[in-house]
Write a protein that binds this DNA or RNA. Sequence first.
DNA 1: CGCCTGTACGTTACCGATAACTTACCAGCT
DNA 2: AGCTGGTAAGTTATCGGTAACGTACAGGCG
Lengths: 340, 340
Amino acid sequence: MNTRPDPVTPLTMRDVAERLGVSTMTVSRALRGQRGIGEATRQRVLAEVAALGYRPNKLARGLRTGGPSELIGLVVTNLANPFYSQLAVGVEEVCVRYGARVMLGSTSEDPDVERDVVTDLLERGVDGLVVVPASHDHSHLGAERLRDTPVVLAASPPMDIDVDCVLVDDFGGTRAACRRLIERGHRRIGFLGLPPSLWTGSERFRGYALALEEAGIAVDERYVSRHRGDSTLAREAARAMLALPDHPTALLTANNRNTVGALLALRDRPDDGEPVALAGFDDIELADMLHLPLTVVSYDAAEVGRAAASLLFERQRSTAPLHPRRVTIATTLIDHPVPR
Amino acid sequence: MNTRPDPVTPLTMRDVAERLGVSTMTVSRALRGQRGIGEATRQRVLAEVAALGYRPNKLARGLRTGGPSELIGLVVTNLANPFYSQLAVGVEEVCVRYGARVMLGSTSEDPDVERDVVTDLLERGVDGLVVVPASHDHSHLGAERLRDTPVVLAASPPMDIDVDCVLVDDFGGTRAACRRLIERGHRRIGFLGLPPSLWTGSERFRGYALALEEAGIAVDERYVSRHRGDSTLAREAARAMLALPDHPTALLTANNRNTVGALLALRDRPDDGEPVALAGFDDIELADMLHLPLTVVSYDAAEVGRAAASLLFERQRSTAPLHPRRVTIATTLIDHPVPR
DNA sequence: CGCCTGTACGTTACCGATAACTTACCAGCT
DNA sequence: AGCTGGTAAGTTATCGGTAACGTACAGGCG
């Protein structure tokens, strides 16, 4: 009598009900703490449930109630990038607070994959999506494809669709960093950046350009390099810039990889010249251990995720249609000193 | 006639069927490319499906077929840690290959949270679980709680339960690093490690101890510090060790944070003495940019995830009960030179 | 005693899809 | 015409759970 039912067939509510000689509805009520059931019966049911190790099937529940699946889809380009894993941490944190879980999808920066992933997540009944778009084409996130699943874009504003988004203050952060360099007396500031087709690339360049303009400095094209690529490319660009007779006295880098490239180029440089200052977007681990001072634009990537998830749940809860909203996450300027 | 049905009620297969005046079964067959339907009808159905933007509900499908949910639960302590985000990347990669998705759960290293997360994931019908355990208590992963959902532990061997696991070669990696130091003539090697209660802590110390023994060197307790904590603690420990009159000529660190602590302690040290060599478990970003040579034990964290997911799917596919298996991921020794 | 109210359950239908079975229809053959 | 066989559809039951409704019985009250 102590043997369990066939293990390949998972335990169902009816199994529990039949053992007790009650209806499945009674078990359901007992489990969900609903009223309409006697206390004694409830205890009997809960005891049997515990004894059998029965667990309700949340999928079936959601099917009937038509209620939320308490599932959020998170679509990122590449989880290995610390920015996205931090973002995931933030999304997860808020989801758990609302009793939801995160379903993951990586796109490897491929728009076609992104489309498939989004479709799959929708078919799996997610209540909402947080998407870091792989490209500027957001047509697969339009209303007709999503029905009424809310979406929040992260790190990129929506194009031709009406959805919420969470952005980083790319413009303000870069402007502040550039100002800091200007305050320190630099007039010839080189910029190592991203292609203008990227929102991020365009905004960060704008911050750089405005800070210069505000200081009455003209943008010198010889001091500007905007490329898509890794730190090797950035290193070459920095090296070329520093080889100019009137080379920049400071470099401003638009992201992590450019910063690393610049660091390498600076280190390659003979020590006899004036030191070249460096500031960059994105904080760098162990920046404190480098033997040159580094100013970085830092921000809380997890906060981007938290904000995105919060927008999602707010929209889910509100009955009235909300206008598309845009949240911008602030940046901080950090001066990493040289140790000792 | 072109208006869609009530948008709050998602499109169902019946909606499509009714519009065409066919049965849901016909739609189902058309969508799944089953036989038993005329080519003309199929085209008509597919056209309508496309026009309406109908998407089948995978949950409902799974409910009826009783087949796999094509969902894997991934339970980690903290996604912000690069090791775990890399692991997630690996798990995701393999899952996608098998047409499955990953559902995420973070435990914040809290065993109680871990238990709840596991329960929740099981209720959501995952086909399998990859778990990085938060503690040595694995009782909530035992057969009676899981029924027949396969589990793979990552980075920690199972305790009192029979499940598969994927480990990193903690022992071999540390031993190799220690040997490298010995080869370079070091005899007094300090060890900054983790508490012995952790599998990882114990294994890495064992590697250190054996390498010494093989070289005929006795372990000197004054050169060993095993603590749970951050890099600050490690820094203090390293500083104390280096302050000894016959201080170690090399340090071996058991993980990332200890390595950072050691780096800080080494930098605080006056430059006049002999340089102290450093080797550590876990690779460090920008290690090439530090101005001291660093040897690290590197391994592919994504591979741990890939291996774990593969074990899961293999077990899922095999009908015969498999014995618990154990996979160990190899490590590599990398010498990071000082730049230039 | 009849009537009403409230509680504690059981019954039924249904959520969205599919497996298994059944029916309708047509061509080809004797 | 009558039979057979094959294909293209429709019908029904079902997955595991829940909402809505029905029912039985207790107690209160005039």
